[in-house]
Amino acid sequence: MRPFFAMIKRSHFKSRSLPYLLILPQAVVTLTFFYWPAIQGMIQSFLLSDPFGRKSRFVWFYNYIELFSDPLYLKSILITFVFSLATAAVSISLGLFIAAMANRALRATALVRTMLIWPYAVAPAISGIMWLFLLHPSYGIVAIGVKNWLGVDWNPVLYGSDAMVMIVMASAWKEVSYNFVFFMAGMQAIPKSLIEAAAIDGAGPFRRFWTITVPLLSPTFFFLMVMNIIYAFFETFGIIHTVTQGGPGGSTNTLVYKVYQDGFVGLNLGSSSAQSVVLMLLIILITFLQFRFVEKKVQYSG
């Protein structure tokens, strides 16, 4: 097989200028809005500037050293990991559960799918608004239920852990349908003969689920883990901005939200750029892990 980047059709065209013309729009947009800003960001992260960006001084790794000795940043790293793991755990387990039920209820698959798929189209910020109301300390019905039945002194405006639960709920709810679609597709790709053979050997529905379905779904599971964590890292900005704005007391200030806060609200350009570079390295690492460990295993039958 030819190397990944070199693949081409055996039968192709020869033209001097046309291919350049065709790739030009992509090249221009990529250079202007990806590579140039990325390089600018890297340079900026080695500079110390005044808030208006007029004067700047080269300071080597000062911004990075400051960043990693800042307890608020370390706290933000911890918050981000707790938040994304919790979001992934809630939405993946709920997605798997519903998909397992839907896969058994063969009669109404299409209808069930329609009823479950649309939260995918709801903007994170709107999911945030709805959960803000459901968990509102004085009006929210879920909040009232929690207070009366569980006796919890629920108040996300005051308590950091409550605010965290709120953004996890708003983020996970939206992602359930995505996970459901993939688990459903994964389950339908499992050969029926395998299930039937196990049934003939006397394995009941639960045993079949845990010993056949779940192991065969493990590639889907890993893939969704990665996608959900990426989602929680980068796409939940709208939820945090509408629901908690990083508060109370920085308890929901995730890494991406902090870049925005420090760069656009606090005007600390050097630190914000250094944070962007750290995020870039992080996402490169995640993408690498995904290609290295997940992509290889995506096989259902064999």
């Binding site: 990806f34 800003p37 980068f234 870049v259 760069g263 914000s272």
Partner: peptide, 11 residues
Amino acid sequence: MLPVEVRILPT
């Protein structure tokens, strides 16, 4: 690997 969220300021 570069969503807009990680290169906010320079973009």
